[in-house]
Amino acid sequence: MPNTVIAERYQITDTFGKHQFDHPPQNIVVTDWTVLENLLELGIVPLGAPELDRYRHYVVQPKLPTMITDIGKRMTPNLATVKSLNPDVVILGTKQRELARAFSLFARVNYYNSFSPRYRTNGTKSRKRFLQIAQLVQKVPLAEKKLAFLDTRIAELKKQLSDHFGQQLPFVTTCRFSAKQKLLLYGRNSMPDYALGLLGIEDEYQTEVSTWGETEVSISALKEIKTGYLICFKPHDDASIFNQNNWRKLSLVQQDRFHYADPVWSYGGAMSVLYIAEAVTKTLLNL
């Protein structure tokens, strides 16, 4: 008789609780970019994911393979498209719990809430979620290796900054212009703030804790950034704000303390912390 390999049943944990699996899911659909990032970092390419063109524009890293099917909007994915892919598992992300019932009619559903004002920091939680998703696809050793590399690389970047600036690193506040050209500053509980903290950098603009760690501000609020740098993550598709008088009159603009950083996603998974740290470090070292 031929040898028969019997898969060992294993248990995983997500935001819903504990689940039993007989084998790692092969056909996965995700409805969230954070989950998508985490899977790609683990070498897993899902069958379907949302808003792929926007992902390529805003998230950039990790690079998106071409064979993934676009399932529509993140908050309102196309149910028929997802069903047509015949997934073993549909994985939901932050604020998508309500989608579970519809998808559970034809697939298993797992849910990973990665952002919340109740978490000690979203950055710390991102590491836990990365390992939990790795547990689902049975890639925990790879996830641990990736996190170890992240820690080593962050230490290298921190030393580069210390060698360049000395013991006193400059204050840095990070921001992004939204698709509607709203100015969003990142502060407490944001992924950029977590990355800055690992680098030994403090921000100068204090914000309240929120789900994403971001605060929409007016141009006049930037007057509070008195000595530090304001670093904005690309892309920024509409630069008309720079023509406004109240922008040009800002001391941080007149003193050349506003700069761009390479595109990185500030609402991503564990490895996005590294991409944020690398982007900010690159900008600071090239001032």
Rank of each mutant, 00 (worst) to 15 (best):
S251H: 14
Y194N: 07
A7E: 14
T69E: 14
E156Q: 15
Q244R: 15
T81F: 04
A134W: 01
R176P: 00
P117F: 08
I71K: 06
V109M: 08
L105Q: 15
L185A: 07
E51L: 11
T173R: 10
G43H: 12
H164R: 14
Q26I: 06
Q20L: 11
S266N: 11
K95V: 09
T31C: 13
H164F: 15
L147K: 04
Q138C: 03
T69G: 00
W33M: 11
E41N: 14
A107M: 05
P62F: 04
Q138R: 15
Q96H: 08
I91Q: 00
K226F: 05
F115E: 13
D88L: 02
S104I: 07
M1P: 06
D238G: 01
V209R: 15
G213V: 09
S240A: 13
A134D: 01
N245S: 14
G17M: 06
E208M: 06
P141I: 09
P263N: 04
P50R: 07
N245H: 13
K18V: 14
A134N: 01
F115K: 07
L157C: 15
Q244I: 05
D88H: 08
W247H: 06
K180I: 07
Q132V: 02
A134L: 02
L274Y: 02
L184M: 13
L142F: 06
D163A: 12
L184D: 03
I154L: 12
V109N: 02
T174P: 04
L39C: 04
F149R: 09
G187A: 10
A100M: 02
F233P: 00
K95T: 13
L274W: 05
K226M: 07
D70L: 10
Y275W: 14
K139Y: 02
V209S: 03
S114I: 07
L39T: 01
E156H: 12
V280F: 08
V172W: 10
L199P: 10
